[in-house]
């Protein structure tokens, strides 16, 4: 073995050539990837980034229907003043000093209301390190009190009230039905996340009912937004209840292997089932001298 490692190979030239080819091919492939997306992202996107203008959408949040419950956040002049300070320090560089937004970078926050602010800040998606990267769930940077202050400040510029969902009023079976109909196409049917056009879709294991309601009504990032005619309040409550359920779904069959289906199943079949049997065959297959 040692001799094999140190021995000068008889075909190093071929090996080196092949290695060079694979590296070149890899480089070409990696370089080719962003250029093919450049057509849709007007040359401004990062590699693997979303289609154009996703970070600067003008999707206005769908307002709750009359009579639907809304989420009220604390509001006072002092809170707005604190929010103003926080906003100027943490948000204004992209969203503008007067919430007017920056074309091609960040949307205007005038008239978005409380829901999107609560969603983006409480899930840690904002503030972004880089203006163009996809907002991903992270530990929230602001405390609850600071978030409330920012909500109070931004909501003072107008906008619909924040939606809310009460899982206790929801129906689990309806939740599965509505989730499969509207959400599973991207979020996977047990909310384990997935892939759309080069954008990872988050799993919903950490999503709270309030965040689910806000996301459904405003459609963060590439997600579509749903009005009350598509998903009414009862559906919303049920979806929130179902999302909570997916944290601990009924795994009657035993170890759930991530509720993902065939990929982990194949890994278990090969590397636990067949591997165990090959070990058995190895042990009993030969007369041990």
């Amino acid at each position: 073995m040692r001799r094999w490692l140190t021995r000068r190979s008889r075909i190093p030239a071929v090996l080196r050539l092949t290695l060079a080819v694979i590296l070149a091919a890899g480089a070409v492939a990696v370089l080719a990837a962003p250029s093919s997306e450049g057509q849709t992202s007007s040359g401004a996107g990062v590699p693997g980034g979303p289609p154009a203008g996703v970070n600067a959408p003008s999707k206005s949040p769908e307002p709750p229907a009359p009579g639907d419950p809304v989420k009220t956040f604390p509001d006072s002049p002092a809170l707005r003043a604190q929010g103003y300070t926080l906003y100027q320090a943490g948000c204004s560089s992209c969203h503008g000093i007067a919430l007017q937004g920056t074309p091609g970078v960040a949307p205007s926050l005038r008239g978005v209301g409380a829901g999107p602010v609560d969603f983006y800040l409480s899930t840690g998606r904002m503030p972004l390190e880089q203006p163009r990267e996809e907002p991903q769930r992270a530990p929230a940077l602001y405390t609850r009190g600071q978030i409330d202050a920012l909500i109070a400040y931004v909501a003072s510029f107008g906008g619909p009230p924040a939606p809310t969902a009460d899982p206790a009023k929801g129906n689990l079976a309806l939740g599965l039905h509505e989730f499969t109909l509207h959400c599973a196409g991207c979020h996977q049917v047990v909310a384990r996340g997935g892939l759309t056009v080069n954008v990872p879709v988050p799993d919903l294991l950490a999503a709270t009912p309030q965040q689910v309601a806000e996301a459904v009504r405003m459609g963060p990032y590439v997600m579509p937004h749903f009005g009350t005619r598509q998903i009414d309040q009862h559906d919303l409550d049920s979806i929130a209840r179902y999302v909570l359920w997916t944290r601990h779904p009924v795994n009657a069959g035993g170890w759930a292997i991530y509720n993902l289906g065939p990929i982990p199943e194949g890994i278990v079949a090969w590397f636990m089932g067949l591997a165990a049997l090959v070990i058995v065959a190895r042990l009993i297959g030969e007369r041990l001298a």
Partner: peptide
């Protein structure tokens, strides 16, 4: 070890789909 928990996938209708669907 749970395999193919069909109660979690739900019934099929031609207008439904889910993300990350894989074959065996």
């Amino acid at each position: 070890v749970q395999i193919n928990p069909i109660w979690q996938w739900g019934p099929f209708h031609p207008y439904l789909s889910e993300n990350g669907a894989q074959p065996d």
